[in-house]
Every structure is written in C-alpha cells, then in structure tokens.
C-alpha cells in the first residue's frame, strides 16, 4: 500500500521549495519513515535546523520544529535537550551549515556525546546562497566562487565526527533510499550523539557547473561511488580510490551528556 507521508506533513505545505531532482525530499521521506518506525511521539520530538536548503526541512514536518541562525542548529538543539532531556531531538542541516559556519558547534556537540540525531545532508555546495564552494566541494570541482576549480582538500564529515567524539556515525546516499530510514532509525535509538551523513545531489548549483547532464546522472554517480563497509574490507586500496564507505562506520556506548549533567546537579545539591 502507498506509504502515508502526508500525516507527518503540515497541511498545505507541499509542494516544497526544493529544486527538481533535489535529494532533500528523499531524505525527508526517509526521516518520516524512520520516525514512524521508532514510533516517535510528534509532540515530544523537536526538529532543529539552521539556514540553508536542507534546513528548510523542519518547516514541512508536523512536529515541534525550530529554525535557527546559520550554523547554530547544534547549539540550539543542545539547549532544547538540556532543558527537556526526555525530548527526542533531531537536527537537520547541510554541509556548509554544519561543517563550515557551524563547524565549532558541530564538533563540540559531538564531543559532549549529547543524545541527539544529526542528519547532515552533504550536497557538496552552498545551494541556497548561490553555489559557493563549501568545505565538502571535491577538489578541482567548480562552484560560483571557484570558477577555475576548487583548490581546497575536503572535509570528510564522518571522520570529523568520529574524531570529535560522536558515538554513532553512519553514512549513506540519496540513491540508497531504503538505507536512509534504517540508519536514521538506528541513530534515533542510539543513546548519544548520532551523526547520519547523507550524500545528496544539488543539480541546480553543483550539477550544472560540473558536467552532470541530468539529475539521474548525479544519482547514478552516488550509486557508483558508494561502497558498503563490509564489501570495502575485501577491496584493495586501489579499488577504493575515489569511493566513499556507506553504512554504520562507528558505534560505541559511552556515558550520555544529559545523564552526566543530572549527576552533577545532584552532587551540587549535596546528595
């Protein structure tokens, strides 16, 4: 039977503003399926975002939503979680929002291991502001501010998150639509900081400058570069050149921040 997405979407909000072929819609569908799978109470779920194309996502969902300043989604989400530790907090944002403008908030939220799920939609560019290069634009690719090719090396968001101390890190792509909801659901169930990096496509500002003739060319590229973690262990370094690993990259159980903080409060009160 057709999946009922519309019960999770605010009435009258569709069609959404994303460009034709933008993968953010696919990620939003995955998030709705994941929230249904975890049976999250929408009244007790906060979806927080910053600024950008990906950060428009919470506006469509019929949950408690918070649309904040550019890059500050993780900081606001930390505030929500600290004041209401029982609330399910999900953060949505793009690569520029999360790792450039909000880079510090991102790594410190990871370090604290606070219980939230951060879905970071990496479309390799700043889409909404006009296609400027982001820390995730591949070296040599063109953006509106790098018309002769981007000289910078890239951020590997998942490795950054693992290095910063997140206890659940997973990566998938907009092509692998069924994997998106499984990983988000796993992230929601995980006690601690869960980072779900979704490689996405931006046909309007990234694709047309980088010789992708159509939306489906970008989707097929996502399919081609993705290698599941289990398959990668049997591949040589040469075969893995230019590929990205998908699936659960890192998982660890460590003390969660709000619980630790509650202990500090008890201690301060002389318990």
């Amino acid at each position: 039977m057709a999946y009922d997405y519309e019960k999770s979407i605010r009435p009258g909000k569709l069609p959404h503003i994303w460009c034709p072929g933008c993968g953010h819609g696919i990620v939003m569908k995955g998030l709705i399926r994941a929230m249904d799978a975890c049976e999250l109470d929408r009244k007790n779920t906060a979806i927080v975002s910053g600024i950008g194309c990906a950060s428009r996502l919470p506006g469509y969902l019929d949950c408690c939503t918070l649309h904040t300043a550019h890059g500050r989604a993780a900081a606001f989400a930390t505030g929500v979680k600290m004041s209401k530790p029982d609330m399910n907090v999900i953060v949505c944002g793009g690569d520029g929002d999360g790792t450039a403008i909000g880079g510090n908030h991102f790594i410190h939220a990871c370090r604290r291991n606070i219980d939230m799920t951060y879905i970071i939609m990496n479309n390799f560019i700043y889409g909404m502001t006009g296609g400027q290069f982001s820390p995730c634009t591949p070296t040599g690719d063109k953006a509106s501010t790098t018309p002769y090719g981007n000289p910078d090396p890239i951020f590997d968001i998942s490795k950054l998150a693992i290095g910063a101390g997140a206890t659940f890190v997973a990566r998938t792509t907009a092509f692998h639509a069924t994997q998106i909801d499984k990983l988000i659901a796993e992230g929601i169930k995980h006690k601690g900081m869960a980072i779900i990096e979704v490689l996405d496509d931006c046909p309007t500002t990234y694709g047309r400058r980088n010789k992708f003739r159509s939306v489906t060319d970008m989707m097929k590229r996502l399919k081609d570069i993705a290698v599941p973690v289990a398959a990668a262990s049997k591949m040589t370094a040469e075969q893995l050149e230019g590929k990205v690993l998908t699936g659960v990259l890192y998982k660890e159980e460590l003390p969660e921040y709000t619980a630790q903080y509650a202990d500090v409060i008890k201690k301060a009160q002389g318990a």
Binding site: A2, I9, L14, P15, H24, I26
Partner: peptide, 11 residues
C-alpha cells in the same frame, strides 16, 4: 514512490 523527492507518486 520511494525515490520521488516531491511526494508526487503514490503506488
């Protein structure tokens, strides 16, 4: 239905 980014198709 799974891949449509625009919620336009129901099967």
């Amino acid at each position: 239905e799974l891949r449509c980014p625009d919620f336009a198709i129901k099967v």
